[in-house]
Structures are given as C-alpha cells and as structure tokens.
C-alpha cells in the first residue's frame, strides 16, 4: 500500500513519463496526467498538444509573465515552445480523431478488463461533461490511463465498468502507484509492480482478473 496520495501521484506520473518516446505528439488530460510533463527524461523531445488549439505547448506561465491570449485546455495561462502552432478546434480534433496524436494520458474513475474507460460522469453526483475526453480516448493511437489504484479503498480496475463509459475498448495501458497493466485481447496482463507492494496485494485491490506470468518486473520509479 502507498497511503500518501501525493506520493502515489508522483510515482504514477514518473512511470507514465517513461512510456513517452522522442518526437511523439502527446495530449495530457487535466489533473494527474498533467504531472507527467514534469518527469520527461532529458533529451526526450515530446510535443504536447492542448485540445483548445496548440501543438508545442510549454510549461505554465510564470506569475507576471502570462499572455492572456494563451491558455491550456484547463483555462490556465501557459507558454509555448519554439516550433509551436496554434489552430482552431476543428483542426485540433482532426489531429485527435485522425490518429495524429500518438499518446493520450487520461485520468480514470473506472477501467475494466475489456479496456473500457469511465471518467466523465458520476450520474446524480458529478456531471462536468466529457469535454474532449471521448474524442481523445477514441482517436489517440495509444490511450494510457493514469490513476490511483483504488478510490476510497475500493477497486477502480473492474471486471466491468459500472459508470457510463468514455470510450469502449480503447485503453492500452493502465498505470497506478502499485502496478503497470497492459490491456490485451486475452485480458489484463500484469507487467510490473511497485517494490512497495506484492502481487497478492495488487490482486486483493483489483476486482478485474489479472493475467500473471513469471516475468512480472518491478516498476522503475
């Protein structure tokens, strides 16, 4: 168990960052996924997209240096890097649905063993809307779900999502503070676990069936 949520988020962000490769166009969802940008290894040039119309997004603007015309998809003032481009929303979603975005990293409320993702609504409680999440989950070449392994002690990796779906069968990889799981045609393959946990503990905190082979590695974080 890793009980400190800040530490858990840091572990997840560090591990997801290792999935990103030189030259890829990447869209990070709001919240935890945004932290991934802090852990990109030196020399790995990643182009970040913001769905409100940027490729080549840089870090948050420093206080006092904000350009009021440049925001990210969360409405925060950001910078752009040399080589950046701005465009309209139709073009931005053409990049997303058209398979031009190599990787999207999204948060999750629930993921299941068929690669389904639910992250946009808790009926009756939280109805923010899907924003760009459905298009990202549907269109990006690789969908990584970055989320804490459990929510209020309850498993979030399920046999079948109970909440309304964001996209059906699109998740490729699940990264939590405890493990890395690949979604395969056969089901969820446990690839790595954190040194601070055990396979048995991961199983006890996961509702979905896990495929466990002999070569489960430790997460490099």
């Amino acid at each position: 168990m890793i009980n400190n949520p800040e530490l858990a988020k840091e572990i997840i962000a560090k591990r997801v960052a290792k999935e990103l490769k030189y030259g890829q166009l990447v869209n990070l969802g709001i919240g935890l996924p945004t932290l991934v940008a802090n852990y990109i290894p030196e020399g790995v040039h990643i182009i970040f997209q913001s769905e409100n119309g940027i490729t080549g997004m840089g870090p948050m603007a420093k206080p006092g240096e904000e350009d009021k015309n440049i925001t990210n998809a969360g409405g925060q003032y950001v910078t752009v890097l040399p080589g950046a481009a701005f465009f309209d929303s139709a073009f931005s979603f053409a990049l997303i649905r058209g398979g031009h975005v190599d990787v999207t990293v999204l948060g999750g409320l629930e993921v299941d063993q068929e690669g389904n993702l639910a992250n946009w609504i808790i009926p009756g409680k939280m109805v923010p809307g899907m924003g760009g999440a459905m298009d990202l989950a549907t269109g990006a070449k690789k969908v990584i779900v970055a989320m804490q392994h459990t929510g209020k002690g309850q498993p979030k990796i399920l046999k079948k999502c109970r909440l309304p779906l964001t996209a059906k069968g699109k998740v490729s990889l699940i990264v939590t503070e405890l493990c890395v799981i690949e979604v395969t045609k056969e089901g969820l393959l446990l690839k790595e676990i954190n040194k601070e946990t055990t396979i048995d503990e991961v199983k006890s905190l996961t509702e979905a069936d896990l495929i466990i082979q002999d070569d489960v590695k430790y997460m490099d974080v």
């Binding site: 119309g53 350009d67 015309n69 925001t71 701005f86 465009f87 309209d88 929303s89």
Partner: peptide, 10 residues
C-alpha cells in the same frame, strides 16, 4: 492571437 481562435472560425 494565441489560443483565442478555438470555435470562432467555425
């Protein structure tokens, strides 16, 4: 300018 384009042209 910047990201102000978004839905406007459409």
């Amino acid at each position: 300018k910047g990201t102000t384009r978004n839905f406007n042209p459409l």
